[in-house]
């Protein structure tokens, strides 16, 4: 350790403001580079999920309109699910 005390370390013999602000900006750039991908990742995953859901819904709607498959109860359930995903994707 070169400096004797914490205050000496912070003051840097008068250059503290320059050194510390430079390091703070470096930290900000590093943080930006880490955070930006994380945010983008969440956004992309939400997009892809929504797209998958939309495709599924289309399949369901087809099933419903052609009447293939199951009893009425199940069908209304699925329709509600489809409506919900419409709402979600509209948000």
């Amino acid at each position: 350790m070169y400096f004797d005390s914490w205050s000496g370390f912070l003051a840097m013999e008068g250059h503290g403001l320059y050194v510390w602000s430079a390091y703070a900006i470096a930290l900000a750039v590093i943080a930006y580079n880490l955070i930006a991908p994380l945010m983008a990742k969440r956004r992309v995953i939400v997009q892809v999920r929504r797209q998958v859901r939309l495709v599924q819904r289309k399949v369901i709607v087809n099933e419903v309109t052609t009447g293939s498959g199951d009893d009425t109860e199940n069908r209304t359930e699925r329709q509600e699910e489809g409506l919900e995903s419409v709402k979600r994707s509209a948000q």
Binding site: M1, Y2, F3, F9, M12, E13, G14, H15, G16, Y18, V19, A22, Y23
Partner: peptide
């Protein structure tokens, strides 16, 4: 914290 300062520029060289 652990390097000596520059003899010309003092501590600002740590940038």
């Amino acid at each position: 914290a652990f390097t000596p300062p520059d003899y010309l520029q003092g501590n600002s060289y740590r940038i």
